[in-house]
Amino acid sequence: MVFHDPEGMERLRKATPARIGTGRAGTRPTTREQLQLRLDHAAAVDSVYGSVSSTLLDELELFAVDSEVTDKELYLKRPDLGRQLPESSIRLLRERCIQAPQVQIVVSDGLSADAIESNLRDIYPALLDSLAVQGLTAGTPFFVRKARVGCMNAIGDILEPEVIVMLIGERPGLITSRSMSAYLGYRPRSGMTDSQRMVLSNIHQGGTPPVEAGAHLGSLIARMLELRMSGVSLEL
């Protein structure tokens, strides 16, 4: 592409990850651009249907349980099932986890296994560091396959933590398929709503840096414990 003001175009491009200044062939996108778009779309689909490797879970010593959902199609169609745990998972949690911890860390693939694969190694140890610096203690961390954010209520009912932090893959987009969010709740129990939770979003290498997100979570959790609340009523 030849631009009237290439310097200015470059500046616009740097200001946004959106697809701008890509040119056209007649009234349609160029073949190159069309292929790039399909490639990015395929990557997004792959990360929804992908799964987190057991290598990663073993490395970070996380055991895995299932949500009420058995396959990805059902997961996409029935968000309510992603918020519930089957009897087998409940039993496993009761057996293996410390009851009523100060902080419960939960990881889930959610809508992007890719997000967990590419960020967990960085955010998780930084989160543990920040809890240690704040003098907070964490319970037994674990991984839930195909969970929704609301699953923290079901987990809260069983383990009764003071604070839960859930690291979960975000819905992938065409810019990145690797974005992760950290959802936080003070005393998560059945009936807790979105407005009572907090989120640190857009965690990936090109967004909120995973290590710094982990470090910030510790201070957020400390503040939640201090004021005994979370969500929109918590002033930061």
């Binding site: 930084a126 920040s130 610096v133 290590v211 710094e212 470090a215």
Partner: peptide
């Protein structure tokens, strides 16, 4: 230069 100051400080403290 990177946004890593808090994580780095935590790490040094520990």
């Amino acid at each position: 230069e990177n946004d890593i100051a808090k994580a780095l400080g935590n790490c040094i403290y520990l």
